[in-house]
Design a protein around this nucleic acid. Sequence first.
DNA 1: AATTCGCCCTGTCGGC
DNA 2: TGCCGACAGGGCGAAT
Length: 309
Amino acid sequence: MPELPEVETIRRGLKPIVGRRIQSAEFGLPRLILGAKAAELTRRLQGQLIKAVLRRGKYLILELDKDSLVFHLGMTGQLTFAPAHAKEDTRFLRTVTGLQKAVGVHPVDAHTHAILHLDNGGRMQFRDPRTFGKILFIAGEDWKSHPRLSKLGDEPLDLKIESFLAKNYPSDSKRSIKALLLDQSFLAGVGNIYADEALFLSGIHPKKLVSSVKPAERTCLLEAVKTVLRDGIRNQGTTFSDYRKPDGSSGKNFERLKVYGRGGQPCRDCKTVLIKTVIAQRGTVFCPECQPLSAGKKRAISKTVDKVH
DNA sequence: AATTCGCCCTGTCGGC
DNA sequence: TGCCGACAGGGCGAAT
């Protein structure tokens, strides 16, 4: 699913649309659109300048002349950019021996729910097979006050960890640490993949209670969150099914993952079989050896420290 | 007030 | 070969 690194990669890949005007806009499935009806939206967007493409958590924001258009990619959302005269490329999604592999600009199909035609002939397309995504129309420029965005927690890559923890860590919480990482009002942008990866990197069991994670471990965990997010961005996102960069190509982070999607396989560090379970209503993979529930094993933590730095 | 749970949705995959 | 159930899960709103 598109998390912070994927959305950030998409944001960077959409640079070509900045400074262009929207010549026309088309919208499909009404239930994906919030804040305006499709017809009204089409009218309102016509002629508006795309001033900036921004990211907040997992949201992608188009700042326009007068308004803002915000996308959430849910699980399978794709935002792609096709330059003028680009040919349709039907190879965009193709399954070959169980692996989806393709590059190029995707075609308009039944899963394409929005198209922005730009004044230079280019177009941006929103495609989402499982339709968990959303398109928010926000009148005016103040998208930060929108109910869906105002509740978001800090940007993990911006924060100073020590002060963040002192101010925000819910020391009395009885939730699992994994549930906290997935909470967008705590940190914005961390999803299931990077939560599991960060917990592995910091040697913390995903089921451990928030209240029993010690201060040193908290710092370590937040450093690990930053590390896995930065690595994800560097590798241009994690593609295991639908995620694509705006040019249609895949991210390269999947093969780098240590635990996500590797349940039943040996730990890359200690060869112990990784456990797949459900925590906080999400599939969760961890290494029982590297991520002990009781804080008895110091090996994991010392290992983490030199991994992080 | 804090936390969990049910639900939305469809392509893919394993089992029979 | 083909059918079918299980599975994937972000975030909202209801329930506890």
